[in-house]
């Protein structure tokens, strides 16, 4: 909450000029570091006019990249959603040994460099890897194909949902579920009718962040993609390729789609925080 500047709190506030200098400094910094990069994306994308922008976005390889990104996210996000709910159920609703270790392990992918996240799948499924030759002899392609992209994306977005839900469910406790069970509800009914309504906004919040990262991931998918145009290029990779083909307008056009995705994510996220702040409180300290 902003400080109450009106009455007795003069002890907690600064003189006007200090205040406005600080505000000015903060805003200048944010404008320079956050706003300007965002503006430049759209400015560069529209530099040759709306027609060039539209052409760049409807060109077959760009469409393929958009479809691929949607496909990858459509698999990776639900997978991590399922995992996040299961993990937070067993962690938040039960007490068992090794729980803290489990939480740390779930957090691990956040602290692993994206490049390493891609590398591990190359080492596992590449032709020089553990399973590569076996899979190849059975006609299954993992890296340089969609499955590799999905795996790398799942890895980097692994903790998002679980991380939102664990503190939320811990704070809510199990009293309501226990009451439902005592009253004769089945476990499954309890989960759907009691738990899910309690966590739905936190769930949405986690899915939102998970999705933003899944669609925007670059480092990890760059290592496992074969960079085949129209086939294994996700949107961020397509941006890089266009950028390397002197095609800056097209590169920034595709980038602007991703930037819009980021903006939508921010809007929905802020809306959730303002509207359901209390229900998300546990996750935001």
């Amino acid at each position: 909450m902003p400080a109450d500047n009106t009455s007795a709190s003069s002890a907690r506030s600064e003189s006007a000029w200090v205040r406005w200098t600080l505000i000015g400094g903060a805003l200048l910094f944010l404008a320079l570091f956050l706003l300007l990069p965002l503006v430049v994306v759209f400015a560069e994308a529209l530099r040759r006019g709306v027609d060039a922008y539209w052409t760049a976005l409807t060109e077959p390889d760009a469409v393929a990249a958009i479809q691929l990104t949607l496909t990858v996210a459509a698999i990776a996000v639900p997978a991590n959603l399922l995992f996040g709910v299961a993990a937070s159920w067993c962690i938040a609703k039960f007490d068992f040994r090794g729980k803290n270790l489990l939480i740390t392990l779930i957090d691990l992918p956040f602290s692993v460099s994206p490049v390493v996240s891609g590398l591990i799948y190359v080492l596992l499924f590449g032709m020089n890897g553990l399973f590569g030759p076996y899979l190849r002899s059975h006609g299954i392609q993992i890296i340089f194909a969609v499955p590799g992209l999905v795996l790398a994306t799942i890895f980097v977005t692994f903790p998002f949902v679980a991380r939102e839900l664990i503190p939320l469910m811990e704070e809510q406790g199990s009293d309501e579920e226990e009451a439902a069970l005592v009253l004769g509800a089945s476990g499954w009914q309890t989960f759907w009718r009691v738990t899910i309504p309690n966590i739905k906004w936190g769930l949405l919040y986690g899915v939102l962040l998970c999705n933003a990262r899944a669609m925007g991931e670059f480092g990890a998918v760059s290592v496992v993609s074969g960079h085949i145009r129209g086939e294994t290029n996700t949107m961020p990779l397509h941006v890089e390729i266009l950028y390397n083909e002197y095609n800056f307008v097209a590169a920034f056009a595709v980038a602007s789609l991703l930037a819009m995705l980021a903006l939508v994510t921010l809007v929905v996220k802020s809306a959730l925080e303002w509207r359901f702040g209390d229900e998300l409180a546990a996750t935001r300290h």
Binding site: G126, M127, G132, Q141, I143, G226, I228, R229
Partner: peptide
Amino acid sequence: VRQSHGGSGKQARSVIDGLD
């Protein structure tokens, strides 16, 4: 015909690793 472009050494590595 699908194309993949990149640094030559890097491309060879991808083929060795299973890029079809």
